[in-house]
Design a protein around this nucleic acid. Structure first.
Lengths: 193, 193
DNA sequence: ATTATCTATAGATCTATAGATAATGC
DNA sequence: ATTATCTATAGATCTATAGATAATGC
């Protein structure tokens, strides 16, 4: 009962925060406006989210749910190309229509990746690491670098591509991401000697 | 005379800010402390740097000066490998000993890359773009993507590698960066058909 | 006389926390 | 009775700006 109430309030604050972020920008907006829109006190916002960044971390987590689901249900020993195409499609589906917050979320993700090292919040990182490890075991990947490292590089490339697209969205995001995947695969695929 | 005075004050604030950033962290520190250390009013800080991020942008600019110098004096038509090794060495020389501020600078750079699109502040991006274009003209690079885009991907990879190193600095930074360069070259080099 | 640089400060906003309320566990 | 959730608010810090000072240009 109390848990339900808390989650409901938290969710209301979360959604209101995203609206205000999109309208006024993350760093420019006032927490007072978020509190007002979600009909709680400023202190309640603070109780649920110590900082604005914590809201963005929640969005980062949410954004990974559909991707993770699709990745997990891939056939065993799927070719890497299929894995990366799936990821590209899901990334594009989520961010193409909500690109306003992408730079702020990317910035938070980048910091967490190194500073906080919060494995919980970037779950796709783990799932992809596992898929890359399997692919490597089958000889689909170069062994110049460990598969988890390659997975991180792929994600970094995808992030960079999304930021570039953000600044200059000429092509559909999915096309750009699939292009990046192809480039990555060319470099990272095992040489057939 | 006035210009000289201004530049001196600005420089004093800049150096004091970096000290305070390193000590207390960028987001946690107080501007009052920076002002006090540089013996000006808080308003003077605000006059020279509208936000803390502007100090980091200045650091980003400074960090590129030695790299740019080395890149410009490379022999005409240098092999890409040499270009990337040079860049790796300079990046490592600058950041290996001052990694505390790297995540904050990276975060600012990432946002600028897309949001502000401030070509002035990421000059290495242009220089590298030019070098990649020359290399492409000589058939050193794949033509799957335009050379400027490849240069951006390379920089994104280098950035990602630096962040990973930051979190887990087992190897020397230069080694990590050269490893990334090699991986990139494998993928991006033109196929000899 | 005009303008750039800087100070002083009012008002806005945030962070931290004491206390109210209502659900939970005993 | 204890604890989690939330409100109200004091004090810290920031942002925006009016005004002081000193250099510049005419």
């Amino acid at each position: 009962m109390r848990d339900k109430q808390r989650e409901e309030t938290r969710r209301r604050i979360y959604l209101a925060a995203l609206e205000v972020f999109r309208r006024d920008g993350v760093s420019q907006c006032r927490i007072e406006d978020i509190a007002q829109k979600s009909e709680v006190s400023r202190g309640a916002f603070y109780f649920h989210f110590p900082t604005k960044d914590d809201v963005l971390i929640e969005l980062l987590r949410e954004s990974q749910k559909p991707m993770e689901a699709k990745l997990v249900e891939l056939p065993k020993n799927a070719p890497l190309q299929l894995t990366l195409d799936t990821l590209s499609t899901e990334l594009a589906a989520f961010w193409e229509k909500d690109s306003k917050l992408l730079p702020d979320v990317a910035s938070v993700a980048l910091k967490m990746n190194s500073v906080v090292m919060d494995r919980e919040s970037i779950r796709v990182r783990e799932v992809l690491g596992r898929l890359f490890t399997e692919a490597a075991a089958q000889g689909q990947l170069s062994d110049v670098l460990p598969p988890e490292v390659l997975a991180d590089f792929y994600l970094a490339n995808a992030l960079a591509a999304m930021m570039a697209w953000c600044a200059n969205p000429m092509l559909p995001l999915e096309t750009v991401l699939k292009g990046v995947s192809m480039l990555f695969l060319t470099g990272a695929q095992a040489r057939t000697p």
